[in-house]
Simulated assay, not measured.
Amino acid sequence: MLGRLANDARLRQGAAMQFGGRTLIIETASEACSVALFDAGKCIANDHRELGRGHAERLIPMIDALPAKGRADRILTSLGPGSFTGVRIGIAAARALGVAWGVPVLGYPTLALVAVRAWDPAPRPVTVCMNGGHGEWFVQNFDPDNTDGPVRSLTPKAAAETDAKGVIAGNRAKEFAGLLDDDRVALDLLPDAGFAHRLDETRLSLDLSPIYGRAPDAKPQSLQAAKP
């Protein structure tokens, strides 16, 4: 059974990003803003910057600086969870370019990109832990066979009680590992568009709805009006 899963994982990694044309990747869900251009599954240009803020002002110039101004046969954009504003900026830019170029736009889960970035030297189970909101973390388990756990927004205390994998990756990985009694490998990583070739094509979706990972802060007016 383990041998079959390992073989399936190798096949999936080998089949990742097998699109024959050019693919533009847009990643804006965290403090990092990154873009990459792939041709037949190979990265030919990558710009990754840790901005904190200012994605809206930097994103289009970064795309414009890519070969052929980033022109591609399809576009992949991050769906989150992460920064609400950052996710919306990326989706809006991808949609606009998709219309202008007449090409399809697909989304991918941000935490999955962090997980596959941690697949070095080989695919392995990973727990991704990224900054959420209101003092919480976005936590999700990933396995090479694509049997992912659910995305959860947890307090650090609640996260420490979960079944974390031996490798923890993300911008809160070190804090998470520090809460656990045993030794874990902690990789301080942000999502980077240049690693999108490791994403399995099955993770891509035509549904560009953001993945928020937790309930919105604002309540609908109808619910507010119902309060006594």
Rank of each mutant, 00 (worst) to 15 (best):
L59A: 09
M62T: 06
I63P: 04
I63F: 06
D64A: 15
A65W: 10
A65P: 09
L66M: 13
L66Q: 12
P67Y: 06
A68L: 12
A68W: 05
K69D: 06
G70P: 00
G70D: 00
G70Q: 01
R71P: 07
R71L: 13
A72F: 02
D73A: 07
R74V: 03
R74M: 14
R74L: 09
I75Y: 04
I75T: 07
L76M: 14
L76T: 09
L76E: 08
S78I: 13
L79R: 15
G80V: 05
P81A: 07
P81D: 07
G82F: 07
S83C: 11
S83V: 05
F84Y: 15
F84E: 11
T85I: 15
V87E: 10
V87T: 15
V87M: 01
R88T: 13
R88W: 08
I89E: 00
G90M: 09
I91F: 08
A92S: 15
A92H: 01
A94L: 14
A94N: 14
A94S: 15
R95S: 02
R95W: 06
A96V: 08
L97R: 13
L97T: 09
G98D: 09
G98P: 13
A100L: 11
A100P: 01
A100K: 04
W101I: 02
W101Y: 03
G102H: 12
G102K: 12
G102F: 00
G102T: 02
P104Y: 07
P104W: 13
G107K: 02
Y108K: 07
Y108S: 02
P109V: 08
T110N: 10
T110W: 12
T110A: 12
T110C: 09
T110M: 08
L111E: 11
